[in-house]
């Protein structure tokens, strides 16, 4: 007799297997953030930006697997009819999404690991234990809004369009959200845009655990993240309903 937990775990295991067998997904999503971090956070800034960019590139590192894993992954599996086979089977719908979330969280840990190690060793970043924990939890928290965004894209668009849209969202959220450069460098119009992006607020929360908190409004940022997560969840639900004919 199988319980929901058994199904969720089995589904998660299957997700992870699928994921690690796709090197064209794994290598860029794991390597790109840490390479960017080594280049901009350690080498070009001579360590000066190691701490701030740890906060923002951590969000960046999580964003890739979440948006692409869900956006492209769901669209492909839906288009290939795999989702229908699942729906005909007695597997509960939430186990499919829950397993993807868990797998993305695991993946996020592995994407974050090299960045944290690089920050601590090469970048000389040192934080209180509670700050490390808070930073890590914030980065893992980022999985949720971005996964829901990916899910909405995956349900709404076909495989090819979903990949294109995922890319667009991924780059916009990274650049406009201030993950690559501080938004203070932007014109004020673009700064306004940043306030509408979850990536910006997640980065601000992450920064609040470093010595470079830009303001004290962590509560406001968390509230914005919560609102955006709920909205993205709603969008994902609507896209899911829409594709069910």
């Amino acid at each position: 007799m199988s319980t929901g937990t058994d199904i969720l775990l089995a589904e998660t295991g299957a997700e992870l297997r699928k994921t690690i067998r796709a090197p064209e997904f794994v290598i860029p999503t794991l390597a790109l953030p840490v390479c960017f971090y080594l280049l901009f956070g350690i080498m070009l800034s001579r360590g000066g930006a190691a701490e701030t960019l740890l906060a923002t590139y951590g969000v960046f590192a999580v964003m890739g697997p979440a948006i692409f894993g869900f956006g492209a992954g769901v669209a492909t599996e839906r288009e290939r009819g795999w989702l229908d086979i699942k729906r005909v089977s007695p597997a509960p719908a939430w186990s499919y999404i829950g397993a993807k979330l868990l797998a993305t969280l695991v993946f996020a840990v592995f994407a974050l690991l090299p960045i944290y190690v690089a920050a601590a060793t090469l970048g000389g970043v040192a934080l209180e234990q509670s700050a490390w924990l808070g930073l890590l939890m914030t980065h893992l928290l980022a999985v949720f809004p971005f996964s829901l965004l990916g899910l909405a894209l995956g349900f709404r668009f076909g495989a090819n369009a979903a990949i294109a849209m995922s890319n667009l969202c991924f780059l916009s959220l990274a650049v406009l959200g201030g993950l690559w450069f501080p938004i203070a460098l932007f014109p004020s119009v673009m700064q306004g845009v940043a306030y509408g992006l979850p990536s910006f607020h997640l980065a601000e929360v992450a920064l609040s655990f470093t010595r470079y908190a830009t303001d004290k409004g962590t509560g406001d940022h968390l509230a914005m993240i919560t609102i955006m997560t709920v909205v993205l969840g709603g969008l994902a639900y609507l896209a899911w309903q829409r594709q069910r004919t």
């Binding site: 299957a14 067998r21 795999w82 086979i85 005909v88």
Partner: peptide, 13 residues
Amino acid sequence: GAMLQDSDLPELM
């Protein structure tokens, strides 16, 4: 149990 038309399984398993 069902074998659906135009349905494919994930390729990497």
